[in-house]
Design a protein around this nucleic acid. Structure first.
Length: 259
DNA sequence: ATGGTCGCAAGGCGA
């Protein structure tokens, strides 16, 4: 089972680049972030024609997540528990039925800038809610993965220019500590666990020639429960998509599971 | 220090 995360930065703008990548990479399951579309306007047919079922959790103009799957899905749920007043579409879950069942949580963690301020408070509160949800799922002792745009640079080695981020919500000590608290519940950060070297990035800003200068950051992550980590076969970052026509500013991150 | 680029959607916000 090949599972990927891809912040597409607008489904309407990526309606050619996304199928191009799907046909080349052939993932079984994809968690999308920043679809920037209400569910009714999501162009599902072009993806269904490629063999994917499409489950969206969108809103107008901003945020929005989705799961594409060539395998059967069960128990699709939308929204991160813990705050009934939260109207931002950033969380979707489904159980993928492969040879084994895997619970998949697709997430778009708040950016949090500017910090300090209400947006940063929302980010930290959201991460606390995520921690609660992770605890609940870990207690079920089944394979669970949490993949998406975390908007967290975990370590200095995850940025080409870490000094440029020291006052940014993606790299502030509180953000990194909250990410570590989630990891320390017992999750494996799959890309880093298998790649000890720096220089791996998943996002390059559209501005200031960031891609041409390889001024990137690694903020899209794959986290696996112990039972899911046991199944990991391979993982990677599809950096080449950033050089394609009309690219997203993020690239896909994927893993294969014996499931 | 500033401006630099996109997407959505139709002006400015978010990233």
């Amino acid at each position: 089972m090949k599972i990927a995360t891809f912040n597409i930065n607008g489904i309407k703008a990526r309606i050619e680049a996304l199928p191009r990548w799907l046909e080349a990479a052939k993932p079984d399951v994809v968690c999308l972030q920043e679809i920037k579309s209400v569910d009714e306007a999501f162009p599902r047919e072009v993806l269904e024609d490629l063999g994917y079922r499409v489950e969206t959790h969108g809103q107008k103009s901003f945020n929005g997540v989705a799961i594409l799957s060539r395998l059967p899905l069960e128990d699709v749920t939308r929204g991160l528990p813990g705050d009934d007043t939260d109207e931002q579409a950033r969380w979707i879950e489904a159980t993928v039925i492969g040879e084994k069942a895997v619970r998949v949580c697709g997430l778009y963690l708040p950016n949090g800038n500017p910090a300090p301020g209400p947006k940063y408070d929302y980010k930290l509160a959201w991460m606390a809610r995520m921690e609660t949800r992770v605890r609940a799922l870990l207690a079920e002792e089944m394979p669970v993965i949490f993949l998406g745009d975390y908007n967290v640079i975990p370590q200095a080695m995850d940025a080409a220019k870490p000094q440029a981020w020291v006052e940014d919500a993606l790299y502030l000590p509180q953000s990194r500590a909250a990410f570590r608290r989630i990891l320390n519940l017992g999750l494996t950060e799959v890309i880093r666990a298998r790649n000890p070297a720096p220089g791996l990035y998943t996002f390059w800003d559209y501005q200031a020639g960031a891609w041409e200068r390889n001024n990137g950051i690694r903020i899209d992550h794959l986290l696996a429960s112990p039972q899911a980590a046991d199944l990991v076969q391979d993982c990677g970052i599809d950096k080449d998509t950033r050089a394609g026509d009309k690219p997203s500013d993020h690239v896909p991150v994927w893993m294969t599971l014996d499931a």
